[in-house]
Simulated assay, not measured.
Amino acid sequence: MKSFKEFPVPQLISDSHSLRQMVDSLLVENYVTMDTEFVRESTYWPELCLIQIAGSHQVYLVDALSKTIDLSLLTPLLLEPKIVKVFHAAQQDLEIFLHLFGFLPVSIFDTQIAAMVAGFGNQIGYDSLIESLLNHKVDKSYRFSDWSIRPLTKAQQDYAVADVTYLWSAFPILYEKLRLDNRLSWVASEMELLSNPDFYLPPIEKICKKLGAKIRNGRSLACLSYLIQWREEKAQKVNIPRHHFIRDESLIAIAVALPDTVKTLEKIRGINRDFANGQDGQSVLEIIKKTKEIDSESLPTPFIYKNPVEKPSEALVSLLKVMLLAKCEIYKVAPKLVASSKDIEKIALGYRDLEIFTGWRHEVFGKDAIDLCEGKLMISVQDKTLKFVKV
């Protein structure tokens, strides 16, 4: 078993004075490891319950639900560029900080993404990464614990601590591997995406495409777009999941039927009388009225996915997928980090304005993918491995 740092008993932080002292003690660190525990089953925004932070000498459990703590005191630590904030699978943690503080921590490092760059596979879990780097098994039995209940049990505290203490020992090992492989710049480019607040915006356009896929009427599609935006804003305001407020099926039915009275709105599946007669029903009817006033030339064009001209060659797609796997074996990088299935299809269709043709991805896969599509490269088998031969 590889050695990892032993930490003292975790320090529980539940008041502002202790939090200020904790931050002051951590401002001398080169890096800290961080994680959060939260619940989100019945809310739009995650309800932050606990923040775990480990430095070189101490590990802390910050009670985010305490009535006597001001979490904004974390700001100096979160915004100190000289201190790397190490997370594993950071997206949800960072989304919480962005919503809570209005900014993202600076100098972040996501070990899940870094591990994909380093060749540990697609979206490797924390327990698997720790076992690979430290040869230690992490108990994940409390992964779905209710972190809003107080007091926290000893088992919950031990679980929470393990999420940052082993990470503290694993980070320098992973970092050194990336340095020796000259891949720190690859990770840095991925961290730029996580550091962009726009990355965490609600996927309105994606939802519109998903729900509007079968709508062939431009006016109904416009109405659906307005309804989706309205639902998102309403769900955020009252802090409930979007589907708890009004389901996708009901939005589609409203957009197709375009009811113009409370009585006709009531007949939509999933819409009850209280909703139709209340302020929300009135808002829906106003959206429909606005939609009906749009002139025909300004209506959106329905989404078309089964255009024969846009259907890629299945054989070429298969060849590109084989090449992706082979190149990722050579470079020891996770295929999902390099290109998605949609990327492969777009490459086969001739698209060249893709992220795959920039930065390190172009070196690993992009340039050879173009050559394969243009008949300048062929694939052969030699000694039971794939080889790429320039034509």
Rank of each mutant, 00 (worst) to 15 (best):
V84H: 02
K384M: 01
E190V: 04
I173K: 08
A339S: 10
E266F: 00
G278C: 10
L129E: 01
V187Q: 02
F303P: 09
Y305I: 08
E47T: 14
I113A: 06
Y175F: 13
A162M: 11
S318G: 09
E363V: 14
E29S: 13
Y142K: 14
E95I: 06
S318K: 13
V164Q: 05
L78T: 07
S18H: 10
R20H: 15
S148L: 10
A255C: 11
L201V: 04
H99K: 15
F38M: 08
M116F: 00
K292D: 01
L324M: 07
Q92A: 06
E310A: 15
I288S: 01
I149M: 07
W230F: 05
M378C: 11
V117C: 09
Q58F: 01
D371E: 15
I207R: 15
Q112N: 03
K263Q: 14
E37L: 09
R20E: 15
G121Y: 07
K237N: 11
S296F: 11
V39N: 05
S225D: 05
L354R: 02
K384D: 06
W45L: 15
L133P: 09
P76V: 03
E363D: 11
G359E: 12
P202Y: 09
I252M: 03
V59P: 01
Y166C: 07
P308W: 10
F245Y: 07
V86K: 00
Q157M: 15
K177W: 00
Q91A: 14
W45C: 09
S169C: 05
I149Q: 08
V284E: 06
S56D: 10
L258H: 01
V391L: 04
Y31Q: 08
V256F: 02
L316R: 12
D198G: 08
Q157R: 13
V391M: 04
I13G: 05
L94R: 07
I271E: 01
H17E: 14
K210R: 15
L134S: 02
P105A: 04
D280V: 00
L221Q: 02
I207G: 02
C328W: 10
S380P: 00
L73P: 03
Y175L: 05
S283I: 10
S185Y: 00
I124T: 15
E329Q: 15
G212K: 08
R352F: 00
Y331H: 15
D383S: 11
Q282G: 12
E232K: 03
A253Y: 05
Q91D: 11
P197Y: 09
P197F: 08
R231P: 13
V389C: 04
E95K: 10
E232N: 03
W45I: 12
L134R: 08
S195L: 12
H88W: 03
K346Q: 14
L325N: 14
K390F: 03
S169K: 02
W168S: 06
N182E: 14
D295G: 00
P302V: 03
G278N: 07
T165Q: 11
D343R: 13
K140N: 09
I294L: 14
G270P: 00
N122R: 00
N135M: 07
F275Y: 12
K214E: 04
V9D: 09
D93E: 08
A235E: 08
L180E: 11
A276R: 03
A64V: 12
F103D: 03
L174Q: 01
P172G: 05
M191P: 12
Q123Y: 02
L224C: 07
I254H: 04
E297Y: 04
D274T: 09
E205K: 13
V391W: 03
Q91M: 07
L65R: 06
A339T: 13
R273Q: 13
A115P: 07
